[in-house]
Design a protein around this nucleic acid. Structure first.
Lengths: 259, 259
DNA sequence: GCAAAAGTGTTCCGACTACACCCATGC
DNA sequence: GCATGGGTGTAGTCGGAACACTTTTGC
């Protein structure tokens, strides 16, 4: 979906694309409203589930459908501001990772386009976010439904939001493997198996052996052992570690693999 | 630039962001025109140079500055159609790879926003493309300047186009290492050193030994030896290979490294 | 003691590096 | 012949996979 390979496409097909321009108004510029839809993930390591935040729509179109949290960009507001606003309107959260995903902008992706006379188009700059589950309070305004859905039980969503969600999930998996986003969403100090739990719930069991994961993670040298031990029920107490941002700095932009 | 890490950002700073909304009209939706700006790369393996396509602007703003080829999205036109249009308006090309890059949409990134009274914002959905150099004819309409610039000699560009270009270059390097885009831009049959030349001009000398590159590339099993030999001047004739799309199919989405 | 969880070590094997070397052509 | 570029082979080394084993706790 994000890529287009037009190898061998002839010039003719490029000049007269399959979905031809609107006959009446070809050449005229389209007017847009710009929406920011955000795929907000969190990981419930207790229950070993990956969750997505969904909101229930109350207006047409797609009334009574669940959808990704979103908002339309206001005057003077940057895309990033709008994405932040979506987050803070729905949840209270201190620790998060946020990134732009993809921009969906085909005509007729939003039924409102044909409904009103002004021929305004709706474009969605989708984002994806990872937030700390334990540290997140949903803002229940009583009226609008809002809920964490396990990824496996997400229903049919409004607009093209299922597509966006699928893409966001892919991106989450990639990010987790190639960059230390996990530590943006873990507590200040954490055990190595906390990290492992997070990875397995997102990437699935068997992406790596625990002890090998351990070894590789420590070899990166981006974790500091605080020396403090924590005991959670039975079993040997675990060391608490801290993410060392300075040690990570030189590794930035460099390809790294946790898997 | 594409990512935002807001770890530790307090709720307050999220509610009242640094660049506060427009005082007069907070809460009102912004109206957008949507542009598609494309970073078009090609590789001149003869001269061992990576080239970017630039066009000279003739209207304000940024008159007489070079800029990335772009266009504003028309009524009924999808983002992808618009990107195709940008390509076909500037060059004639049969073989290319095209992908969406990033959407830049902060207020005041385009001087026109303040110039007109309607408070229309300009948003840029940037794309990047890789095209076959030998197979590409620039469309010189006599009036507008259009030229291939070696990446190292790109001047100060209009708008935030230098930023977009930088990001596009990064993406090109990544794509080359993790996916077979190179074959979208190579002739139907090619020698292994054709591939190597392409890689070294983009990634730089010394990203890999030639013979190791060879071995790894062949081990992937996605190239068919046609058996045909080609002789280019002195030296032993080289085998011509063909990209095997079917053999690649199962490797799709799987992480692969050419480097 | 035993189960549970954390942490260490070891063996095997494939992959990548850095070369040296052979092959086929033009001149 | 010899220069030029194409193509093959190999020895050393690094790192990951799999799994056995040890340590420290709760009960």
């Amino acid at each position: 979906m994000p890529t287009t390979n037009t190898k061998g496409k002839s010039i003719d097909s490029l000049i007269a694309p399959a979905n031809a321009p609107h006959p009446l108004a070809s050449g005229e510029l389209a007017d847009f409203k710009v929406g920011v839809d955000t795929v907000i993930f969190s990981v419930d390591t207790e229950q070993h589930r990956l969750l997505v935040l969904l909101v229930l729509r109350h207006q047409a179109p797609f009334s009574d459908y669940w959808s990704l949290p979103g908002a339309l960009v206001r005057v003077g507001e940057s895309l990033e501001d709008a994405a932040d606003r979506v987050l803070t309107e729905k949840i209270r959260v201190n620790n998060l990772y946020l990134e732009q995903l993809f921009t969906f902008g085909g005509p007729n992706r939003d039924p409102r386009e044909s409904a009103d006379a002004y021929n305004v188009r709706y474009l969605s700059v989708s984002h994806f976010a990872l937030v700390r589950f334990e540290d997140t309070a949903l803002i229940a305004d009583g009226v609008s439904g809002i809920a964490w859905y396990p990824l496996s039980r997400v229903p049919q969503l409004a607009f093209d939001h299922n597509q966006i969600l699928t893409y966001g999930y892919q991106r989450l998996r990639n990010k987790l493997q190639y960059s230390p986003v996990a530590f943006d969403v873990l507590p200040e100090t954490f055990t190595l198996s906390d990290v492992y739990q997070l990875y397995t719930t997102v990437l699935g069991e068997g992406f790596s052996d625990y002890s090998n994961f351990r070894t590789r993670l420590l070899k990166l040298g981006i974790l500091q052992d605080t020396g403090v031990k924590t005991s959670r029920g039975a079993g040997r107490p675990a060391s608490l570690y801290r993410f060392d941002a300075e040690a990570f700095e030189p590794l930035k932009d460099r390809p790294m693999v946790f898997l």
